[in-house]
Simulated scan of single mutants.
Amino acid sequence: YLIIDEYDHFANDIIAMGNNEFYKEIVRASGFVRDFYETLKIGTETVIDRIFITGISPIMLDDLTSGFNIALNVTMDLSLNEMLGFTEEEVVKILEEVEIEEKEREKSLEELKELY
């Protein structure tokens, strides 16, 4: 199994800087990012059984489809919603266990809901 977290973080940074030409260069057919994912795809034939990739946004996923066309976007699949990360109930329990005061717990939960 191969797990890649925030596979597109660097690409979003490049786009945010306004460097669209560099972005296009690295994800084009012979760009190093596309080559990397094509290598992973080849690896699924022999050594890699499953690949789980998380990202910040679907921008790069669209640009990699021809080089990495074995992907299935499960972002909105409710049956997988709790696959990774923490549920709200688990976060509340953790905050209680580390003895965060109730007022701070509520504030932390609101911030987490807004940001994540």
Rank of each mutant, 00 (worst) to 15 (best):
Y1Q: 09
Y1H: 10
L2I: 15
I3L: 12
D5Y: 10
E6R: 08
Y7N: 02
Y7M: 08
Y7A: 09
D8K: 10
D8A: 10
H9M: 14
F10E: 15
F10L: 15
F10Y: 15
F10P: 12
A11G: 14
A11Q: 15
N12K: 11
I15C: 04
A16G: 03
A16I: 00
A16Y: 01
A16V: 00
A16F: 02
G18T: 09
G18W: 00
G18Q: 06
N19Y: 03
N19R: 08
N19A: 10
N20R: 04
E21T: 07
E21S: 09
F22C: 02
F22I: 06
Y23T: 04
E25V: 01
E25T: 10
I26P: 01
I26L: 01
V27C: 10
R28G: 07
G31F: 04
F32Y: 15
V33W: 10
V33I: 15
R34C: 14
E38I: 13
T39M: 15
L40D: 13
K41V: 09
K41L: 11
I42T: 15
E45I: 12
E45L: 12
V47L: 07
V47S: 07
V47E: 05
I48Y: 04
I48L: 09
D49A: 06
D49T: 07
F52V: 03
F52A: 00
I53K: 00
I53D: 00
G55F: 05
G55E: 06
G55D: 04
I56D: 13
I56L: 15
S57P: 06
P58L: 08
P58M: 08
P58D: 13
I59G: 07
D62Q: 08
D63C: 04
D63A: 13
L64N: 03
L64H: 05
T65C: 03
S66G: 03
G67W: 08
G67I: 08
I70M: 14
L72D: 03
L72A: 07
L72G: 04
N73G: 00
N73Y: 05
N73I: 03
V74C: 11
T75C: 09
T75G: 06
D77N: 14
D77Y: 04
L78A: 08
L80K: 07
N81T: 07
E82S: 06
E82R: 09
E82A: 02
L84Y: 12
L84W: 11
L84Q: 03
G85D: 10
G85Y: 13
F86R: 03
F86S: 02
E88K: 14
E89M: 06
E90M: 08
E90L: 05
E90R: 08
V92N: 06
V92Y: 07
K93E: 11
K93S: 11
K93Q: 12
K93C: 03
K93T: 10
I94R: 08
I94N: 05
L95Q: 01
E97K: 01
E97C: 01
E97I: 00
V98N: 01
V98D: 01
V98M: 00
I100C: 04
I100S: 01
E101D: 14
E101T: 05
E102M: 11
R105A: 02
E106L: 05
K107G: 04
K107E: 15
K107T: 14
L109T: 03
L109A: 03
E110P: 01
L112W: 10
L112R: 11
K113Y: 13
K113C: 06
L115P: 00
L115E: 09
L115H: 12
Y116K: 09
